[in-house]
Write a protein that binds this DNA or RNA. Structure first.
Lengths: 344, 344
DNA sequence: GCGGTTACTGTAAACGCTTACTGTAATCGC
DNA sequence: GCGATTACAGTAAGCGTTTACAGTAACCGC
């Protein structure tokens, strides 16, 4: 009673085995570099593999072994150049180590509790890089308890869970740039926060406050708004601030995209950058050097953060040592948006 | 002789079956919506699934069935905002239809013949979206012959292969923008091509030439350079052109990123945009509205092209009708970089 | 020269699903 | 009212690997 459905032309491991005159077990050992195989046999097998253009069936490997050789990357909606660099970073790390990348961009808040589960998880990946606030703590905890290796990117893990995280030196970066703004003679410096609960934002706010304190500038809550790290929201927020009469001589926009929104609103109110208001961002997005005036910002190693997250996750999967937190250095990039006296 | 390795806590289909009081076959039917299952049973099964938080093991499904429920996306190195929108488009299409996205960004030319095979293919995906010139015709043909569904994005399939492709209306878009440049009084219009063999570029060049011809402007080969659709290359190319004394009053840069390079070089030579030289791009990248002066360009539906490619691929996989070519409309976006008389 | 390793290779049982085939009760046509 | 059909559900084979276990031959120490 043959139940074979497809009389597939697929080249299977036993085709390779037959051609090389060995058993499938040996072929498998050669492919995975496990066990011991004599040099001569190994050569014969590899020859057969390339002759037949054999590529192991991923699902079969995943089922038989325990590993899928696939990593999951969960992102918020893909916007800005930031994500491009990040994904490329992850990509660059994993292929050399034999893994593939499964991606999911959550565009709306989702969670394990709210209906359908994440399309990425224990069932199809060996581990997850989580870079989105849209995934709630409960879901992360659940997956962690299922022993799914996880790395948090630009976000802290839920309380008490031993999950590594990769961050920028946000606090220091923000401190540096606000310090720079102060040295350029600004005293009333506004700050636009990122999205609610965003870790990067929280840390940048700390840096902002520390710089003010270090220079004996009193904190003024009316100078703190929410730009959500997005040009649109920043535009609106700044507009309200201006309309309600808040005065300032500089703005730290939280990130570069928000800075773009700031530019627009300032222009609408006929305020010049940097003459009337100095503007600073964070990230050093690709476009920041090209907008007018070029934006002073903090260069964040985005590609590197993706790479580092992937690398840490692989270490976790392979049982190597990992540090529980990686902080990536940032660097102040001074351009014209904060330089008074230079013409635009 | 039990060979069970992991005493895994994983919830399996038989756990669900037991809980719902049915056979695994029935659970499978419910999950996949195949066969006939009574409403009452279906409900019971779904209840059990969500109670147990059951998610089918991807590899097991892939092995038992014929489908991996995964699509592959092959890209050139991830640069510019363009890719972000594209990936998001693919993402937005497939998840609703129950597929996952496996991504690979080839940063260097690779092929099936040259050593290791592509990490994406028949062995781990149900189909491929190919958007890169780095993958040679031979590899594509090989995979096509293995009956792997393929869709080409912004690139033509190898000669004679029946593979659908998704393109922008490049020829028309280029025609429109060059026509616009001509109407603004420009006669000597330079064009910067994209990378060698790039299909978008070829079509844009046709549009460029047709617009010239339609306006009785003789074609001057010295006005055509290669910007590779990248700011760096465009910068250098334009520099050589200027240094060798080529004169022009407008530049169609091929795409927006190249236009950015053009801006830089013109600035270096103290040429103003648009007073001395009008500049136009293609794509309408996120940053194009923000650079100075805002760039006149052709808005290309990038997100939509990703969506459309995915949708076509799924149709192919599911055996639905597909058109062999989809051309997406473009739209002229006039900004200041081509408007003489308006101040910058 | 003999027991104990060591180096290599083969056999065959999982892995967790899907689905062809079979069975059974209910329904239908006339 | 009876054979044929239909709707639903179960049984179990098989998908293409990996790997525990079982050899077997060569080698080692003494």
């Amino acid at each position: 009673m043959s139940v074979r459905r497809t009389n597939s032309q697929r080249v299977r491991i036993d085709d390779v085995a037959r051609k090389a005159g060995v058993s499938t077990a040996t072929v498998s050992r050669v492919i995975n570099g496990t066990g011991t195989v004599s040099v001569a046999t190994k050569e014969r097998v590899n020859q057969a593999i390339s002759d037949l253009k054999f590529v192991a069936h991923g699902s079969a490997r995943g089922l038989a072994g325990t590993k899928t050789h696939t990593l999951g990357l969960v992102l918020p909606g893909l916007t800005t150049f930031f994500f491009t660099a990040l994904i490329q970073g992850v990509n660059d790390c994993i292929y050399d180590r034999g893994y593939s990348l499964l991606m999911y961009s959550v565009s709306t808040p989702a969670s394990m509790t709210s209906g359908k589960p994440l399309p990425l998880g224990e069932h199809n990946t060996d581990g997850l890089i989580v870079f989105t606030d849209f995934l709630d703590d409960y879901s992360i905890q659940y997956m962690h308890e299922q022993n799914l290796p996880i790395v948090m990117l630009h976000r802290s893990p839920p309380e008490g869970l031993d999950i590594p995280k990769i961050m920028f030196e946000n606090e220091k970066g923000a401190f540096d740039i606000v310090e720079h703004l102060i040295q350029m003679g600004n005293r009333r410096i506004a700050y636009l926060k990122g999205p609610e609960g965003n870790e990067d934002s929280r840390q940048r706010e700390l840096g902002y406050k520390r710089a003010l304190a270090a220079n004996n500038i009193p904190l003024d809550d009316s100078l703190i708004g929410r730009g959500n790290f997005a040009s649109g929201r920043a535009r609106n927020e700044l507009e309200s601030m201006l309309e309600s009469g808040v005065k300032f001589d500089a703005i730290f926009a939280g990130n570069d995209d928000a800075a773009v929104g700031v530019y627009e609103t300032l222009q609408k109110f006929n305020l010049r950058v940097p003459e009337d208001v100095a503007v600073a961002g964070f990230d050093d997005d690709y476009m920041s050097q090209y907008i007018s005036p070029p934006l002073t910002t903090v260069k964040a190693p985005v590609h590197r953060s993706g790479f580092e997250a992937a690398s840490t996750l692989l270490d976790l999967i392979e049982g190597n040592e990992t540090s529980s937190e990686v902080r990536l250095n940032t660097e102040l990039v001074i351009r014209e948006s904060t330089q008074r006296g230079k013409h635009v």
